[in-house]
């Protein structure tokens, strides 16, 4: 019996015990809210108590609504976060967010920096995945606009199959974007995307589309309330660093 099965069994038979098991998740979420300045340090315990109380009150509903398609732990973390947000909406922002330590430090090759960098890069990768059908286009534009090398793997994200020759031709065409001004890049990518997506998108609408997705990506990277201050340029630096690390 794996951990999830044990936890599901507890949900049915002994929800209080399950709640005890999940105290670390509750504290993890509350601490995250504290680090974002949404909870005062001394209010953390009160918030944890409030969450426990509400979870107990809602337990019958949770038992009825959980549909076993996800890990119970994940499902509970979603509910805990919702309760946190409810409480936050009641009281509003209570303090300034703690500055995030890695924003103060300069880029270095220490293991800590590397760890933080990897964490950030992973976050960016996840955000790209969240764009679902648009992730291929966003990923391609992100790389081209930031003068990164586009490889087969990036084109594979687009639906449909292409011959090796076709793939090579497209990669060569994309490669011509290097050191071009942004306007020219959108023109080239607009042409490349036509066979990849089976439809033509004008360079201007492509620019607008990328601009809106980039804004969304930056919002997600920075968090809400903001804990980072990524810009279009710093995302480029993050990509460059990732490429250097891969090399």
């Amino acid at each position: 019996m794996d951990r999830n099965q044990i936890e599901i069994k507890l949900l049915k038979s002994n929800p209080r015990k399950l709640l005890l098991k999940y105290q670390s998740i509750i504290w993890m979420i509350v601490r995250d809210y504290f680090s974002k300045g949404m909870v005062r340090f001394r209010e953390q315990e009160d918030l944890v108590q409030e969450i426990n109380k509400k979870l107990l009150e809602r337990m019958p509903r949770i038992q009825a609504q959980y549909n076993y398609t996800s890990k119970l732990r994940t499902y509970f973390s979603v509910i805990i976060r919702n309760i946190c947000l409810e409480e936050y909406r009641k009281i509003g922002m209570v303090s300034e967010a703690d500055p995030i330590p890695y924003l103060k430090t300069e880029a270095a090759e220490s293991p800590v920096d590397l760890f933080l960098f990897n964490q950030e890069y992973e976050r960016l990768q996840r955000i790209i995945v969240l764009f679902n059908k648009e992730q291929a286009r966003f990923n391609l534009l992100l790389k081209v606009i930031n003068n990164m090398i586009v490889v087969d793997k990036d084109l594979d994200l687009f639906p449909g199959e292409r011959s090796d020759e076709e793939q090579d031709r497209l990669l060569k065409e994309i490669d011509t974007c290097k050191d071009q001004i942004k306007k020219k890049k959108y023109i080239i990518i607009s042409q490349v995307l036509t066979p990849l997506e089976g439809k033509y998108t004008t360079p201007e609408s492509l620019r607008k589309w990328y601009s809106s997705r980039l804004d969304e990506c930056l919002k997600l990277m920075n968090g809400n309330p903001p804990t980072s201050s990524y810009t279009a340029d710093s995302i480029g630096l993050l990509l460059e660093q990732a490429y250097a690390n891969e090399k």
């Binding site: 609504q65 959980y66 398609t69 996800s70 499902y75 919702n82």
Partner: peptide, 9 residues
């Protein structure tokens, strides 16, 4: 919430 949890997994 189930769908969000599933997506996270």
């Amino acid at each position: 919430d189930n769908a969000i949890a599933g997506y996270i997994d």
